[in-house]
Simulated scan of single mutants.
Amino acid sequence: MSISFEPMTPADADEVMAFLSSNRFPFHVQAAPETPNVRQGIENGRFWNADTQGYWVLSEGIRIGLASLEDLQDAGSPLFDLRLGEAHRGKGIGVEVLRALCNLVFTTMPEVRRFEGQTREDNIAMRKTFIRAGFLKEAHYRLAWPNNDGGYVASIAYAILRQDWENGTVTEFDWDDILI
């Protein structure tokens, strides 16, 4: 499977709106993005500004989703947001997409030391995808992610270090380094 990325530009606004409003994303803050909200985000530069760059995710040249690299002004540690179309989920493609995103970031951004993503605690598929792609859990933010019924769940942060990406390793750390 060949995963690649096509940078988004303002000319993609209508296609981004169509993609986001025609798919559900149950583990995102807006599970069912509505066109007016998507339009407002796009008009505010959500996918193309000094701090964010959006990309179409391509598999064998076919658009299967979108990814955005965020916090690009914090050159040492950008974040990402990934949204695959509903028809492409549950097929194991997420690991390949994450590995390809790492390749994109670490080969085109030499100043990046670490690459991070977050998901909800109940998004078990994405949490496993992070681990399979070489990411390590670094944080567990309790009741930090709003869900669609007005409640909150934990947000879990995963990251991969440049050195681990280069060496195919995972640098562990001691969660219990301070004992009382």
Rank of each mutant, 00 (worst) to 15 (best):
I3R: 01
S4A: 11
F5M: 02
F5V: 10
F5K: 09
E6F: 00
P7L: 03
T9W: 00
T9M: 02
T9Q: 02
P10R: 12
P10A: 11
A11I: 08
D12H: 14
D14F: 06
D14I: 05
V16E: 00
A18Y: 08
F19R: 04
F19V: 05
S21I: 09
S21R: 12
S22E: 12
N23V: 01
F25I: 04
F25C: 08
P26Q: 08
V29Y: 13
A32G: 04
E34R: 15
V38A: 03
R39M: 11
Q40G: 09
Q40D: 11
Q40E: 14
G41E: 00
E43Y: 06
E43T: 10
N44T: 06
N44S: 14
R46E: 11
R46V: 03
R46C: 01
N49H: 01
N49Y: 01
D51V: 03
Q53E: 04
G54C: 00
G54W: 00
Y55C: 08
Y55K: 04
S59H: 14
G61I: 03
G61H: 00
G61Y: 01
I62N: 12
L66K: 13
L66Q: 15
A67E: 05
L69D: 00
E70L: 13
E70K: 07
Q73E: 14
Q73F: 10
D74G: 08
D74A: 10
D74C: 06
A75H: 10
G76Y: 05
S77V: 02
P78A: 02
L79Q: 13
F80Q: 09
F80K: 01
R83C: 12
G92H: 01
I93M: 09
E96V: 05
V97P: 11
L98C: 11
A100W: 12
L101N: 06
L101D: 07
C102P: 07
L104S: 07
V105K: 07
T107E: 15
T107N: 15
T107D: 14
P110V: 08
P110H: 04
E111V: 09
R114Q: 13
F115M: 04
F115N: 03
Q118M: 15
R120V: 07
N123G: 06
I124L: 13
I124D: 10
K128G: 05
K128D: 10
T129H: 01
A133I: 08
K137H: 11
A139N: 05
H140F: 14
Y141S: 10
Y141D: 04
R142W: 04
L143F: 12
A144G: 08
W145E: 09
P146N: 01
P146S: 08
N148I: 13
Y152K: 12
V153F: 05
V153P: 01
V153A: 05
A154E: 02
I156F: 00
I156Q: 02
A157I: 06
A157N: 03
Y158T: 04
A159G: 04
A159I: 06
A159D: 01
I160N: 03
L161I: 13
L161N: 08
L161H: 02
L161S: 02
Q163M: 09
W165F: 15
N167A: 15
N167Q: 15
G168L: 13
G168F: 10
G168C: 14
T169V: 10
E172M: 05
D174Q: 03
W175G: 11
W175M: 15
W175Q: 14
W175F: 14
D176A: 12
D176W: 01
D176T: 01
D176N: 13
